[in-house]
Amino acid sequence: MEIIIGIVILALLVLVFVYNGLISKKNEVENSLSGIEVQLTKRYDLIPNLVSSVQKYMEHEKEVLTELTELRAKALNSSRGSNEEIELNNKISQGLARVVLSAENYPDLKSSDNFIQLQRSLNEVEEQLAAARRGFNSAVTSYNNGLEMFPSNVIANYLGLQRKELFQAPDVKRSDITVKDLFS
């Protein structure tokens, strides 16, 4: 009898442990998604400043700047973590990369203190964003492992937990194109 009670208690403990582990992993994914959102918001905040400081120099790139402003407005209205938001942000990354590359053609802009400061802030946000995405992927991997491994997969099935997708890096990574050139 005592053995049976012992086994039941042990089984319950394992159940609680596995359940809590899964929920904690799920919350970690949510939390790391918020980390990405914080950095995206910082980036959205920088775009108007960037556009206003470069538009008087960049007469031939007005189209890119308008597109960037529009993309920012759409991204702000898109739902958090949605495919639309990801796609819009990939386009914002490409737009920012084009602005930064174009600045090479405008020596006055390139040497302006305001632009240099903005450039530094953008670099920082981009790097923070990359870190947040890496954190998100790590949390998702751990969560997905929990969903597939025994015995947590049994509880995950019962709870109806779904696999989550990893963040795929956009084709154009601004940080690869930028920076040293601008500061040289």
């Binding site: 790391s32 990359a130 870190a131």
Partner: peptide
């Protein structure tokens, strides 16, 4: 800070 650690350790 998990995120900042990843920011530092690029």
């Amino acid at each position: 800070d998990q995120q900042e650690a990843r920011y530092l350790l690029s």
